[in-house]
Design a protein around this nucleic acid. Structure first.
Length: 545
RNA sequence: GGCCCCGUGGUCAAGAGGUUAAGACAUCGCCCUUUCACGGCGGAGACAUGGGUUCGAUUCCCGUCGGGGUCACCA
């Protein structure tokens, strides 16, 4: 009995690894093309940090004419949730980030390096586990979870490193015969990697983002095949990224400390290791403490949140790119119209430490993006959003022709308005353009009922006036009623006037819209039309009595 | 606790052995012949800390402190 016999005993039916090596041949890509992947577990909604990784991975693949694929890491069936895969695929689609290969829905996939769902690759992992086992680079372990727990306790009280290594790796000392006998007796087992590493030796590693990092070698005999026959993350990663011909593993930096293990696995399997790029997580300030954005505590951690709020996916992506690269902002300022695909992202310039998530900044980015949209685009997006999330807004927007006029106010010029940051802001911003509950808002400087009434009764709106004539008209009105027709004059001669033309305008504005802050009032009156303007003033007057 | 990474204004961040230490968001003031937004101009605001090396260190080295990550038959 030797290791080859043991391997045959344990995995009698799996294929030889040569079969897979040939089936998943080297990709035929141009020099310098980068192959990346997004490899989430279907254990919940997509996290903003996951989207960030996917964005970066996809970007570098695209800009080198490489490949970006989606792999589903579902080797832990206990944690899997219903529709997990669908959620991931849909989120990527929402952000216009569909992969070149991989899962396209719960059951289908595209690309010739699949299956892209790990639970469907069981026999592949077993083939490679068998390969290691046959060479004596892996062994069977019969320790129960309880044994392991006890061992850990012992290690803790003895204040030594925890884990399965060195003298603690009891099953490593078993002979092939002993292992075979236990298997034949039907004892449950798992497969462990026989680590050739020594903790007192260092390895040097260069991470594309983090730079040079030194670690002690890995000496842990980690599990590669679990009791259910599925691989652990570490083993699946190495086998998959080799077979799928990934060139750059772009993942969250919580994996950084596993690099020595992964490198060792690649080495022992005889594979060429990919380059690693470990991305710093997106953090949040929690009472003075930095912590990762949490799925449980922070709604903004879920990618779905941005959709619900109506923050355009472009805005989220641009904000993320802002975090990823400090040169993005400059690039954007110089190229306000170019698509983000044209921006060249450098992995090695990415920040090594985690950035605090800044919603205010995101919203600022979003405002700028929306301000560049045409009225038509604003309408389409807002309407789409309203259809899903706001019944009242949807109703308001059914009159498209009128809505386009409303959205057209101060839009399309050199200095467009920036007052919409997200579609959920829209209703609040345009509601006064509709005959729905114009709120009663307190008049400001001019607040005597009689004065207000005089102004409102005296004002005549003529829609055919151009803007200058229209405003001259208000000035004249102010002057006739004893107010300063110029603000400067008012300021120069305090005490001579009760108020100035601005205050008169405010009276009109409040009566018309129920608020003090609005876009250009001339445009508002034009869009509203003579009839509505007069009706509103009439109503405002009647409310005064 | 062991190991690893990180530490420039409130936030995101550029940067070099010698700089008036960029820029963006936020904030404050002024201007933009009606408000708000936009835009323009300006203000306030930072190299965690101690010790080296050096003519000179925020930049290089060591310690301290602080932050983060990781130590599963989870990923």
């Amino acid at each position: 009995m030797n290791y080859q016999d043991l391997a045959n005993l344990v995995f009698p039916d799996v294929k030889d690894i040569n079969y897979y090596e040939e089936k998943y041949a080297k990709r035929n890509l141009e020099d310098g093309a980068i192959v990346t992947r997004f490899a989430p577990s279907p254990t919940g909604f997509v996290h903003i940090g996951g989207l960030y990784q996917a964005l970066v991975a996809r970007k570098v693949a695209k800009q080198t004419n490489g490949v970006f694929f989606l792999r589903i890491e579902d080797t832990d069936q206990k944690r899997e949730i219903e529709n997990g895969v669908t959620g991931i695929v849909k989120s990527l689609q929402d952000f216009d980030m569909a992969p070149d290969e991989g899962q396209i829905n719960d059951t289908e996939e595209i690309g010739s390096y699949g299956p892209y769902k790990q639970s469907l690759r069981k026999e592949i992992y077993q083939a490679y586990a068998k390969y290691l086992l046959a060479q004596g680079k892996a062994y069977l372990c019969f320790c129960t979870p309880e044994d392991l727990e006890q061992m850990r306790l012992k290690q803790e009280t003895a204040k030594v490193r925890t884990g399965y290594y060195g003298v603690w790796a009891t099953c490593r000392k078993l002979s092939v015969e002993e292992m075979a006998e236990k298997v034949k007796k039907g004892e449950a087992f798992i497969v462990r990697f026989k680590s050739p590493g020594r903790e007192d030796r260092k390895i040097k590693h260069h991470d594309v983002i983090k730079g040079n990092v030194d670690f002690p070698e890995n000496d842990q005999d980690i599990v590669i095949i679990k009791a259910d026959g599925l691989p652990t993350y570490h083993f699946a990663h190495v086998v998959d990224d080799h077979l799928m011909r990934t060139t750059h593993v772009i993942r969250s930096d919580e994996w950084l400390s596993s690099v020595p293990l992964h490198l060792q696995l690649f080495q022992e399997l005889g594979f060429k290791a990919p380059k690693y790029a470990h991305i710093a997580p997106i953090m949040k300030n929690d009472n003075g403490n930095k912590r990762k954005l949490s799925k449980r505590k922070d709604p903004e951690a879920a990618v779905e949140y941005y959709k619900q709020e109506g923050i355009p996916s472009d805005a989220v992506k641009e904000y993320l790119l802002n975090i990823a690269s400090s040169s993005f902002e400059n690039w954007r300022r110089q190229n306000p119209e170019l698509p983000i695909e044209d921006f060249d992202l450098q992995l090695n310039k990415m920040s090594v430490s985690g950035a605090l998530f800044d919603m205010i900044k995101l919203l600022d980015v979003s405002k700028s993006i929306i301000s560049r949209y045409t009225a038509e685009r604003v309408y389409e997006e807002a309407f789409k959003w309203a259809n899903k999330y706001d019944e009242e807004l949807k109703e308001i927007l059914t009159d498209k022709e009128y809505a386009l006029k409303v959205f057209g106010i101060e839009r399309g010029n050199k200095k467009p308005r920036k007052d919409i940051a997200k579609w959920s802001d829209v209703k609040e911003n345009i509601i006064y353009m509709y005959d729905k509950n114009i709120p009663e808002y307190p008049y400001q400087v001019i607040n005597e009922k009689e004065d207000i009434k005089t102004i409102l009764e005296a004002y005549k709106f003529n829609p055919s006036d151009d803007k200058q004539t229209w405003f001259d008209n208000i000035k004249k009105l102010a002057e006739n009623l004893g107010y300063a027709s110029e603000v400067k004059e008012f300021k120069a001669n305090p005490g001579m006037y009760k108020a100035h033309v601005g205050d008169v305008s405010t009276v009109l504005r409040v009566a018309l819209t129920g608020r003090t802050n609005t876009p250009d009032m001339y445009e508002i009156m034009q869009v509203l039309g003579k009839e509505k303007v007069e009706k509103r003033f009439k109503e405002a007057i009647s409310k005064l009595n």
